[in-house]
């Protein structure tokens, strides 16, 4: 357990120091949403109609950016081997790493969601539900994405490969997420979609550390 806490603290410290790496993906998200608003000529009805889809696709792409270098720095400076060598603590340490990955991407997106909603011309009444939907779905994106990051850490141009491998697996999250936001916009609570998103997030939380570890072991052997 202390391996978990220790890794958690260490990763948070690293994130705090490498603020640019942490903020870049989120700034990309804001920029990209702004681009859509511009491209759709700011027409309020059009924006609201497509907001769910635009938002979720951009959330997925933002995560692809954020996940890309997730293990690369550790691979280069040798700390990845250290992490994996510590036999049973390795899983917990990885868990800590995965959690921090979500904290600095997914959670940030959740906190920013009112601003995103504003840009996409969503009514303020929807903001809490929007945040909830993102809260339920973004962990799945980070955790499943981490599996891909583990497999592609050693590959050059790994970013595009990461997206190719992971985006198909994230399609259910996309579908449920969009459906949830659209139902919220219609005034209903998206209960079923939230359950599904939460279930996928929990399942991936349990499976990801093991799959990521397996992928990282292979990466280290190359």
């Amino acid at each position: 357990m202390s391996a978990f806490a220790g890794q958690l603290v260490r990763e948070l410290q690293l994130a705090g120091r490498a603020r640019a790496d942490v903020l870049n993906p989120v700034i990309f998200l804001l920029l990209a949403i702004t681009l859509f608003a511009l491209a759709l000529e700011g027409k309020p009805e059009v924006l609201r109609e497509h907001a769910a889809g635009i938002l979720w696709v951009l959330v997925l792409l933002t995560n692809m950016l954020a996940l890309d270098g997730m293990f690369r720095r550790d691979l280069d400076d040798g700390s990845l081997e250290q992490l994996l060598l510590s036999a049973d603590a390795a899983i917990f340490a990885l868990l800590g790493k995965l959690l921090v990955q979500w904290l600095v991407t997914g959670l940030l997106i959740v906190l920013l969601s009112p601003l995103l909603g504003m840009i996409l011309n969503l009514p303020a009444t929807v903001y809490p539900l929007l945040a909830l939907v993102l809260l339920a779905g973004t962990p799945a994106v980070s955790f499943i994405g981490a599996i891909g990051a583990g497999l592609t850490a050693g590959a050059r141009r790994g970013g595009a490969l990461l997206a190719l491998l992971i985006l198909p697996l994230l399609v259910p999250v996309l579908i449920f997420g969009v459906s949830a936001v659209n139902r919220a916009l219609e005034g209903e609570a998206p209960r079923a979609e939230l359950y599904w998103l939460g279930a996928i997030s929990l399942a991936s939380l349990m499976a990801a550390p093991f799959a990521t570890q397996a992928g990282l072991r292979i990466t280290l052997e190359q």
């Binding site: 497999l151 592609t152 790994g158 490969l161 799959a211 992928g215 292979i218 052997e221």
Partner: peptide, 21 residues
């Protein structure tokens, strides 16, 4: 994935993980 990893053995095992996932 198989094309991107140069070591044949590592490529096989990476594909195995992806297949299972």
């Amino acid at each position: 994935l198989r094309e991107s990893i140069s070591s044949a053995e590592a490529a096989g095992r990476a594909c195995a993980i992806l297949a299972i996932v």
